[in-house]
Structures are given as C-alpha cells and as structure tokens.
Amino acid sequence: MPITRKDVDHVARLARLALSEEEKAALEEQLSKILAHAERVTSLDTEGVPPTSHAIQLANVARSDDVVDPLSRDDALANAPAAEEHQFRVPRILEEEE
C-alpha cells in the first residue's frame, strides 16, 4: 500500500517536522518504496509467533530507592536555549493534551 500525501502530512504533524513541499514529495515516494520492499515481511505468515522486543531476556532490573544528588540549578539550565526565573522558557502552548 503506497504512502499518500495525506499520510505524509499526518505523520509530519505527529513527528513535529515542518517539512517543505519538496521534502514531502520526496518522502512520499521514498517511504512507499521502502515499505514496498518490506512487503515480504508484512505479508509473512507469523501465526502463533510471539513478538520479540528484547533479544536478551532479563527481568526485574530495578534500583533501590536511594537519593542521588540532583544537578545544581545552573547546571540544569546550562544548555537551555531560553530561560527565565530558573525555568525553561517556551512559546505559548496551544494544544490541549494530556
């Protein structure tokens, strides 16, 4: 199933990428081609095959509830593109999300 321009628009919005028209056109074609090549996987019969999300089996890895010294406030903000009153400043938030 080829990728449509609508798909590209939707995915670019989800991924927060302001793409140019040329980029979108190229992606439409390239993604379609890559996914067409993946056809032999997407059409594979995997009935009863469990998915693998970790190749190496480990379980219950956790740490004890012990405090580690946090960063100094200056270090925390050292790389901030914009800061004010020791907080990270961002442009207004439009969308209502969770």
Binding site: D66, V67, P70, R73, A76
Partner: peptide, 27 residues
C-alpha cells in the same frame, strides 16, 4: 510516596525552587 523519582535518584517532594530536583535522566 517514594524517596526518589521513578527512573532516577532525584528526590521527590512538593513545591520548592524550580529545577532544583532534576538530573540528566529526568531532563
């Protein structure tokens, strides 16, 4: 009510000066 955050060792508390309980992991 744990002493530290879910995925790093920063202390958990209410309020306080902003960005004083942060580390590279929780940032």
């Amino acid at each position: 009510k744990t002493r530290t955050k879910m995925f790093c060792g920063c202390p958990v508390a209410f309020g306080g000066e902003p960005n004083t309980r942060v580390c590279p992991v929780c940032l």
